[in-house]
């Protein structure tokens, strides 16, 4: 696959793959991180057990275009709103936010209403996630 160029600056799309909370289920996060990297994006994987504060700091420091939050502990309705709140407080409004994990349908709607662009549950094809992030970031840049 060819490198994915971001239209304005010509740099690669930068994605932070983040694992907030205490659970150690990182199979999905790592598969996505690698698939995004293989598709030509720059991937910053935070590693496990990150606080929302640490994740937002990484997003700012890395000047990320997108963030993929992976949660399988059931704590998504606590952790995601906190991340969104901190991003807003820091004035970050140009980052595409996606969430992946064991998320019940009811919560998916709530997360989207809060400003999450895409939610991916178990079984989502890797390519769909890569395409969603690429087109989402490109749309924002236009």
């Amino acid at each position: 696959m060819s490198a994915v160029a971001e239209p304005k600056t010509g740099r690669k799309i930068r994605v932070v793959v983040a694992k907030p909370g205490l659970d150690g289920h990182d199979r999905g996060a790592k598969i996505i991180a690698r698939a995004l990297r293989d598709s030509g994006m720059e991937v910053i994987y935070t590693g496990l057990h990150q606080t929302p504060e640490q994740i937002v700091e990484t997003v700012i420091q890395e000047d990320a275009d997108a963030i993929g939050v992976s949660i399988l502990s059931g704590a998504h309705m606590t952790l995601v709103p906190r991340i969104l709140e901190l991003l807003e407080a820091e004035g970050v409004d140009d980052v595409l936010i996606t969430v992946g994990g064991t998320i019940p349908t009811k919560d998916i709607d709530d997360l989207k209403a809060m400003g999450v662009s895409g939610v991916f549950t178990p079984g989502a094809p890797t390519d769909d996630i890569v395409d969603f992030i690429r087109s989402g970031v490109q749309r924002r840049e236009l």
């Binding site: 205490l22 659970d23 704590a75 309705m77």
Partner: peptide, 22 residues
């Protein structure tokens, strides 16, 4: 639950949102 597995008490800031979840 996750805080117990990681050695955090339920009142630890890192436990927020995870107490009794899993």
């Amino acid at each position: 639950d996750m805080p117990t597995l990681m050695g955090y008490d339920s009142d630890h800031p890192r436990s927020l949102g995870e107490v009794g979840r899993e």
